[in-house]
Nucleic acid binder design. Structure first.
Lengths: 208, 208
DNA sequence: TAGCTTACAATACAAACGTATAGAGTGCTG
DNA sequence: CAGCACTCTATACGTTTGTATTGTAAGCTA
């Protein structure tokens, strides 16, 4: 798969990418249309031409990220690609800026990100309910698990600094992934999924 | 201990509290001096008189929260007050706005919050190193544990929504606390601390 | 080729914002 | 009582920001 260079993209896509990066780094309010335009190498007017208002630009970023995440979850988990190297490779190349944006959007108050959070909680809750422990508070467990997972994304700057390695570099992702598996009770996640995740990590580690 | 009503505070304290609340809810950039002044019931000029610039106001909030957290950690953990009801009661009454601010500050890029994160990682790492498993990546584990804990604070809005209960109400805090204990391997935290936390939670539950 | 749509830039403008400045009221101190 | 310090308000100023408007060039279509 050829790597897509930023210059080959249409101006609209470049604007969207620049907006995602700036929204993620500084937040929506601190990001200016002029700043986005400069980062994308276009005039401020063009940003307006393609996206109308700043709010619509943010919505476009939301929709882009959300459709991406949904697609990756589908092709990754539902289609059982979690251990395929090309899938992992592709995710690690394309995901970081999107995850960066998603993390910030969760804090900045994007409706789309909130909806995605709820979706993830529901999926997790359903998964946990299959383990037959009807007395357990599956809702709370699913919520905490989701928040912990996403919390690492939201705090990735601090995680990277504490680790001395960028979380989005393979090394950092590997260390964090393993630490997460060390931390969580296997029976909580379900043995099957737990082993699958561990196998994926180890295969990924062997590849480098 | 008498409850401190907001009107009894000095104007300076009211401004600081209002700023913390707005910074936490909207972020620093989206918060205006005029907004802080209105929320505190004073003129915008007074904000400037007491704190100079917006940046200095943010630093004052940082210092206030940080000294509070450090104090609570000291009197709570070091002095072994974790199970005393009046300590817990006091924390649950005074902590929420401060934690709310801290969570936002971590994302908004406050140097003080970053320093606090690093401190917590170091304390946790030291704790983990006492368990003799020299081959384990204690640094990564401490980082992930810290990020997960704080991640729940940062995402508390979403956690509360998914739970249907405010995380900062006793009910919500209880459900989340128990779910966290269910999720984490006890031997990871150290049996002693784990049991201490569980005992504190159960005593807290009994009190209501 | 005439006409229309699309992609882009440049300029303009009103609102919001941080902050500087001036001044009023009050209490303390000599 | 004079003078100073402190708290607080009101106003003003320059900048930044989102966005509206206008203009230009290129490509498509009939």
């Amino acid at each position: 798969m050829r790597p897509i260079s930023e210059e080959d993209l249409t101006a609209r896509a470049r604007i969207r990418d620049a907006a995602m990066a700036l929204f993620a780094e500084r937040g929506v309010k601190a990001t200016t249309i002029r700043g986005v335009a400069e980062a994308a190498g276009v005039s401020p007017g063009l940003v307006q031409h393609h996206f109308g208002t700043k709010e619509e630009l943010r919505q476009a970023c939301d929709e882009y990220v959300l459709s991406y995440v949904r697609e990756q979850v589908t092709t990754g988990i539902t289609d059982h690609n979690l251990e395929k190297p090309e899938y992992i490779e592709n995710v690690y190349r394309s995901a970081p800026p999107l995850m960066h944006y998603l993390g910030r959007a969760l804090v900045d108050g994007s409706p789309g990100a909130a909806a995605m959070f709820d979706e993830l909680v529901n999926v997790t809750e359903q998964h946990l309910s299959h383990e037959d422990r009807p007395e357990a508070d599956h809702r709370a467990r699913a919520t905490v698990l989701t928040a912990m997972k996403l919390g690492i994304t939201v705090l990735h700057e601090h995680v990277s600094r504490a680790l001395g390695t960028d979380l989005y570099e393979p090394q950092g992702a590997l260390r964090v992934g393993k630490a997460q598996l060390d931390l969580i009770r296997p029976e909580f996640l379900g043995r099957e999924l737990f082993e699958q995740a561990r196998a994926g990590l180890e295969k990924f580690e062997g590849d480098r």
